[in-house]
Write a protein that binds this DNA or RNA. Sequence first.
DNA 1: ATGAGCATGTAACTGGTTACATGATTTA
DNA 2: TAAATCATGTAACCAGTTACATGCTCAT
Lengths: 185, 185
Amino acid sequence: MSRRRSTPFAILGLLSLRPMSGYDVRKAAAESVGHFWSESYGQIYPALRELSSTGLARRRIERKAGRPDRHVYEITAKGSAELRRWLAEAPRPAPFRSELLLKLFFGDTATAATETAWLEAMLRDAVAQLETFRGIERRLRDENARDPHLASWLVTVRFGVHRAEANQRWAREAIELLRPRRRSR
Amino acid sequence: MSRRRSTPFAILGLLSLRPMSGYDVRKAAAESVGHFWSESYGQIYPALRELSSTGLARRRIERKAGRPDRHVYEITAKGSAELRRWLAEAPRPAPFRSELLLKLFFGDTATAATETAWLEAMLRDAVAQLETFRGIERRLRDENARDPHLASWLVTVRFGVHRAEANQRWAREAIELLRPRRRSR
DNA sequence: ATGAGCATGTAACTGGTTACATGATTTA
DNA sequence: TAAATCATGTAACCAGTTACATGCTCAT
């Protein structure tokens, strides 16, 4: 069986939280889970069809006058079972590829100024992100204090926190390393 | 002009260090740069052709009796200019997608044991990586003390160090968070 | 009036990996 | 003698994004 494609399962996971339309999935994949996962419509709609044609989800159509129908998908018992099976499989490691590092690697004193500007932007970004994640963490601890999902959710936010901190430290250090130093004549 | 595809430039960057064959590129992209960039043969060979057909690199064939020809590519002046131009363009941000986080997010107390095993593996991994990066850093500082590329190279290794440290901290914390705690009855 | 949000979906493209074909030489 | 390394390359596949088509409603 060993599936490779994770998209349908990612969506199934979202459906396990609550029934959703393709549009909702898109939003969820751009907000909560969006910090470490994303899906585009080109993936979502075909995947939802697939899910319902294999019986892992069922579709219900909500009609409201004067606006487009909502195709709401709900996870089935079979779907939950498949999701659990998938969750138990070891995750494939995320291939890491950074154009920024690549460019820094090939850079030299001539390009240092431009690079420093990128790093400064990145630093600002990391600072903002850190704040966001800390905010999410606080809300989670307050509002979901006794939710059985709390630990799982905290784990993922904490990842964001550590990553943002690391990026911040690194950016500062990198800016320092690239600072032009007068050379001994 | 604004190119999107970075592969040919990544290769051009490698050629700027020294002339290489496709085979060499593969190795470089699995060693030094391999920590933040990778290329497969299916990308490399066509890209090298493209590079030489557009005059950014030139090919020379090395023959040695009893073994396959080496097609060695060397960057041209035009190639260096193009590379510099590309290096000055802002890098596209790397989309981040983690199946691990996704699975952790959808997990619960029932899956915590399996997840902890993954996190422990990850922790071991991060520890090993940290050692590797620190090793590279040391060698770099020793052997390339006065190389004009030193700063650029250090910057990228330091990224690895900070990332590995963050992963380590996070993994420990996550294991702790997932530890089953007896609930008040 | 303009644009954002709601809501469906698809076709074309892109960037990439995997698996294969081929075959000699060196090392364990 | 088996396996790794050297060395070229391609065809098939895969996962994913982008851009488009369509059209109503609500807030500014």
